[in-house]
Design a binder for these strands. Structure first.
Length: 474
RNA sequence: GCCCUCAUCAUCUAGCCCGGUUAGGAUACAGGCCUUUCAAGCCUGCGGCGGGGGUUCAAAUCCCCCUGAGGGCACCA
C-alpha cells in the first residue's frame, strides 16, 4: 500500500510550489490507490503557529486535494522524537554539543576566510566526561548533533533523477535536537515518515541535499528508508525562485483573483509533468488515471501566467452557467453590484453572455454591471463617439419608438425590428446597434446587445435610452 | 568557495530509455476569415534541439568536456 504525505510548515498561505508538491503527492496516492496524509511541520518554536495553517487547509480543500489521514502536528509528537534521539545518544550515534551560536558563527567565518568549507568543526564530537561536566557547570545547555560518518558515501536512487550520491565527508554533524529539546526538521521528518509508514517521499528539489542526511538517520535508527522523488522547482519569469516579487504566490490569492480550481489544478499538473502527446486540457480524473511519477520533468519550470489565464478562460467557457453564477457572487458583492437579496436567476441568465469573454471570475463584474445598476455611468469617450451627433441621436430615438412596440420583447423580435429600422433609414445596422449599446451599457464594449436587451427587459431598456438622450442633450 | 541537480521555440512541453521525424502541440505575438462591440472560433505566419568533441552509414536521442541556469551548505522547513 502506497502511503505519501504532504508536509507543509504553517506559514500563512499555500505557496504555488507547495501546492504543486501536494498535487503530485495526491495524484500518486490516488493513482496507486494509496493514502494521502497531511502533516504540519510546526517545530519552529519562534514561528507563532496560531491559525496560520487555516489558509493552507482552505487552499487544499479549494483544490480538492483531500487527505485520508491527518492533519498530524509535529508539535504534538515531541515525546516520540525525544525518545528516538535518546536512542541515538545511547548507541553513540549522536552527541551533545555545547557550542554557543556566536562561537559557531565566528568559527564558520574563520573557515570561510581560510577557504574551507563552512561546516561545523566537530569540536564536541569526542568530548571527555570531564570536559562535558565542565561545560555543564558553566551552565551551557547542549544541542544534540548527529555523528555523521567521516568516510564513505551515501547513495540513493531518486525515482525521477536516478542515482544520486554524496560524500559523507561533505556532510556536517547537523543538529537533530535544539537545546530546548525541540527536534529539527531532518530528525522529525525521518521519525515521522517512519512511524507514519510513508512509502514514497515526494518533495521539492530543494530537499535533495537533505536526503543523504535523512538516509543516514534512517540507518542509524534502524529504519528502512522510503523511495524518494524530487520534483523540479517552479521559477519566476526571470528564472529565480518564485517569490512575491513575481506577483502572487499563494493559491488563495489566485482564488481571490477569480481563477477556477479546475484551471489551477490543470495548470499545476502541467508544471513539471505532462501526460504525453499533445494534451493541454486534462481533468482531475484523467490526471489520476495517467499520472506517472517517472514522467515528471527534471528541469525547473517557469510559472507562466499567460498559460494559466488561457486555461482559466477555457474552463470559464466550458463550465455550467449555474456553477459559474454561484462562484461569481462574491465578486459581484465585492463591487457592490448585488446585495444579500438579489436574484441568482438573472445572473444565471447573464453568465452565458460573458463566460467566453471574461477570462476570470474577477472580470465578470465589469461585463455585467449594467444589469445590476439602476443608474449607469456613461463613459465620456463612448458618448462622444456615438451619442453626440444628430444622426445617431435620431436613430436612437427611432430605435426607442420601435422597441416600445415589440411584444414579446425577445432577441428575435428585437433584431428583426432594429434591422428593419436600419434599412428604412438607409444606414448599416451597426449605426443603430452602437448608439443603443452605449445608451444601455454606458460603454462601447459589452456582451451581445440583443441578448442583453432581452434580459434587461423593455422597461429598463427604454428608461436607459431616455437617460442617454438626457445625458447628451444640451 | 564547496556539494548536488538540470539543459528542445520567449514560456509550458511531445520526441530521448529502444539513434533514421519536413523536430509535433499549446500559450504568447503577428496577419486573415467571421462579426452589432469585445471576445470566442477557424486558418496562416513567427520561432527551438546552449557550445565543442567523439561513437555511428546516420545523433535532439548514446558518451565526454565546456558553458549556462537552479538548489543546498542554520539550534528554518
Amino acid at each position: 500500500m502506497v502511503r505519501v504525505r504532504f508536509a507543509p510548515s504553517p506559514t500563512g498561505h499555500l505557496h504555488i510550489g507547495s501546492a504543486r508538491t501536494a498535487l503530485f503527492n495526491w495524484l500518486y496516492a490516488m493513482k496507486m490507490r494509496g493514502v494521502f496524509i497531511l502533516r504540519i511541520e510546526d517545530t519552529d518554536l519562534r514561528r507563532n503557529v496560531d491559525e496560520a495553517f487555516g489558509a493552507i487547509l482552505d487552499a487544499m480543500k479549494w483544490l480538492g486535494l483531500d487527505w485520508q489521514e491527518g492533519p498530524y502536528y509535529q508539535s504534538q509528537r515531541l515525546e516520540l522524537y525525544r525518545k528516538e534521539v535518546e536512542r541515538l545518544l545511547e548507541t553513540g550515534k549522536a552527541y551533545r554539543c555545547y557550542c554557543l551560536p556566536e562561537e559557531l558563527e565566528e568559527r564558520r567565518k574563520e573557515a570561510l576566510q581560510k577557504g574551507l568549507k563552512p561546516m561545523y568543526d566537530r569540536k564536541c564530537r569526542e568530548l571527555s566526561s570531564e570536559e562535558r561536566e565542565k561545560l555543564e557547570r558553566e551552565g551551557r545547555k547542549p544541542a544534540i548533533r548527529f555523528k555523521v560518518p567521516l568516510e564513505g558515501k551515501t547513495i540513493f536512487k531518486d525515482v525521477i533523477r536516478g542515482e544520486i550520491e554524496f560524500y559523507n565527508s561533505e556532510i556536517e554533524d547537523f543538529v537533530i535536537m535544539r537545546k530546548d529539546g525541540i527536534p529539527t526538521y531532518n530528525l522529525a521528518c525521518v521519525v515521522d515518515d517512519h512511524y507514519m509508514e510513508i512509502t514514497d517521499v515526494i518533495r521539492g528539489e530543494d530537499h535533495i541535499s537533505n536526503t543523504p542526511k535523512q538516509i543516514l538517520l534512517y540507518e542509524a535508527l534502524g529504519y528502512a528508508p522510503p523511495r524518494f522523488a524530487h520534483l523540479p522547482m517552479i521559477l519566476g519569469p526571470d528564472k529565480s525562485r518564485l517569490s512575491k516579487r513575481h506577483g502572487a504566490t499563494s493559491v488563495n490569492a489566485y482564488r481571490d483573483m477569480g481563477f477556477l480550481p479546475e484551471a489551477m489544478l490543470n495548470f499545476l499538473a502541467l508544471l513539471g509533468w505532462s501526460p504525453g502527446g499533445n494534451r493541454e486540457i486534462i481533468s482531475r480524473e484523467e490526471m489520476i488515471a495517467e499520472f506517472e511519477l517517472e514522467r515528471v520533468k527534471r528541469h525547473p519550470a517557469i510559472f507562466n501566467m499567460d498559460k494559466l489565464i488561457w486555461l482559466n478562460s477555457h474552463y470559464m467557457k466550458t463550465s455550467p452557467p449555474t456553477y459559474l453564477a454561484r462562484l461569481a457572487v462574491p465578486f459581484l458583492e465585492k463591487e457592490g453590484l448585488v446585495g444579500p437579496d438579489f436574484s441568482l436567476s438573472v445572473l444565471e441568465a447573464v453568465i452565458p453572455l460573458v463566460q467566453e469573454r471574461a477570462k476570470t471570475l474577477g472580470e465578470i463584474p465589469r461585463w455585467v454591471d449594467f444589469f445590476f445598476k439602476d443608474e449607469i455611468e456613461y463613459e465620456p469617450s463612448a458618448v462622444e463617439q456615438w451619442l453626440k451627433d444628430e444622426l445617431h441621436r435620431k436613430l436612437l430615438l427611432s430605435a426607442k419608438e420601435v422597441l416600445e412596440n415589440i411584444e414579446p420583447f425577445n432577441k428575435e423580435n428585437i433584431e428583426t425590428a432594429l434591422r428593419a429600422l436600419a434599412e428604412r433609414e438607409g444606414v448599416k445596422a451597426k449605426e443603430v446597434f452602437h448608439p443603443l449599446r452605449v445608451a444601455v451599457t454606458g460603454k462601447t464594449v459589452s456582451p451581445p446587445l440583443l441578448e442583453s436587451l432581452e434580459i434587461l427587459g423593455k422597461a429598463k431598456t427604454l428608461k436607459r435610452i431616455d437617460q442617454a438622450l438626457g445625458v447628451t442633450s444640451p
